[in-house]
Design a binder for these strands. Structure first.
Length: 279
DNA sequence: AACAAGACCTGCATGC
DNA sequence: TGCATGCAGGTCTTGT
């Protein structure tokens, strides 16, 4: 599920429930996520107050009042949602946090590719999972030249490069396809060839797609929920993702003759694009 | 050094 | 109806 807009949607939804609250009860029902939840996780969180809720790329950072930081990742199918207190946990509800206001936040993740780890305020930036992340695409400093510098010399496809979190932090399979479509760039294009005006177009496209997705509460294909349980609805605004064979919304290409939106597999992952509009 | 493939795990749609 | 297959929003690890 979760790319930057979904994680940011969850962060914004959880903030009013968690910020400034004390965690009164923490239950780890299933510790075997991507990596085991640390043995001391429940003990470390119980009684602590949540001082800040941040996001870095696709990672959520829950900062506690004792300088500990929870590093959270939702993997493919994870969600963090506020549940009615007292409700019985559902299948795949792996970790439950209760606050002194009586709120109940549940980490739910059928595939268990997600993670909940512990770090410290001083160490979190240098944590192996975060240390090499590229720039935040919604930062003011992210622009054409910044992106071009990250892509320079790369021999892989621009699609593969954008999925690499060291190049830009937070893009995933959906938003890479959508961004390349908006920028009019072929997903097969050599990453290193994207510079100058092309890089500027791509940077603008990435920001526009992410901001629009954010306004829609992210994309719900299956698992993503906003923290309040509502679905995201940006999936209705996809131009190309999962639209193989459908007409391209940006040009009048003939589906019968040109095939409309095409699907391509790169690095084992589907890419969707319009061959006519993307060069 | 760069890249692809394999691994992790569950659920769902499809086709026989 | 049941079963096998393939695919899915991610990314670390292993092998070429």
């Amino acid at each position: 599920m979760p790319e930057l807009p979904e994680v940011e949607t969850v962060r914004r939804g959880l903030a009013p429930v968690l910020l400034g609250r004390r965690l009164t009860r923490v239950v780890v029902r299933q510790p075997m996520l991507r990596w085991p939840v640390p043995l001391e996780f429940a003990r470390a969180l119980t009684g602590r107050r949540v001082e800040a809720l941040d996001r870095r790329g696709k990672y959520l950072l829950i900062r506690l009042d004792d300088d500990r930081v929870v590093i959270g990742h939702l993997g493919m199918s994870g969600s963090l949602a506020v549940r009615p207190p007292g409700e019985a946990p559902a299948l795949h509800d792996h970790v439950i946090l209760e606050t002194d206001a009586g709120a109940c936040v549940t980490f739910h993740d059928p595939r268990r590719f997600g993670a909940l780890l512990l770090s410290t305020a001083l160490g979190v930036e240098a944590h192996p999972l975060l240390a090499h992340l590229g720039p935040e695409p919604l930062d003011g400093a992210f622009d054409g030249p910044a992106l071009a510098a990250r892509l320079a010399g790369k021999r892989c496809s621009v699609k593969a490069a954008l999925l690499d979190q060291r190049v830009v932090a937070g893009l995933g399979n959906i938003y890479v396809s959508e961004s390349l479509f908006r920028a009019g760039l072929s997903p097969r294009r050599l990453a290193g060839s994207v510079s100058g005006a092309r890089a500027a177009r791509l940077a603008v496209a990435i920001q526009a797609v992410l901001l629009e997705a954010l306004e829609s509460g992210g994309s719900t294909l299956r698992d993503h929920r906003q923290a309040n349980g509502e679905l995201g609805y940006f999936q209705h605004a996809f131009a190309v993702y999962d639209k193989e064979g459908q007409p391209c919304p940006g040009c009048d290409c003939d589906v019968a003759r040109e095939g409309g939106i095409r699907r391509l597999v790169q690095g084992g992952r589907s890419t969707f694009y319009c061959a006519r509009r993307q060069r």
